[in-house]
Amino acid sequence: MSVVVVLIGVSVLVAASFLVAFLWAVKTGQFEDKYTPSVRILFDDDKKKEEKKNN
């Protein structure tokens, strides 16, 4: 049954790593602006295209 103890330890660690990821995301401001990134992601391709055009 001691394997259960190991599994529980692992499961808590996995959950804790998600918690850390969440705290990090909040800390770096990823929850502050929830709209602009959704628009911005559509622009990024554009620059490369234009460079190609110029070549």
Partner: peptide
């Protein structure tokens, strides 16, 4: 104000994490 909201998110994250794990156990 934005700092206050950040803290609230931290607290929710921690409470949610504990809630889920305690329920599991």
């Amino acid at each position: 104000k934005s700092d206050h909201l950040k803290k609230l998110y931290y607290k929710i994250g921690i409470a949610g994490f504990a809630f889920g794990n305690i329920m599991l156990l």
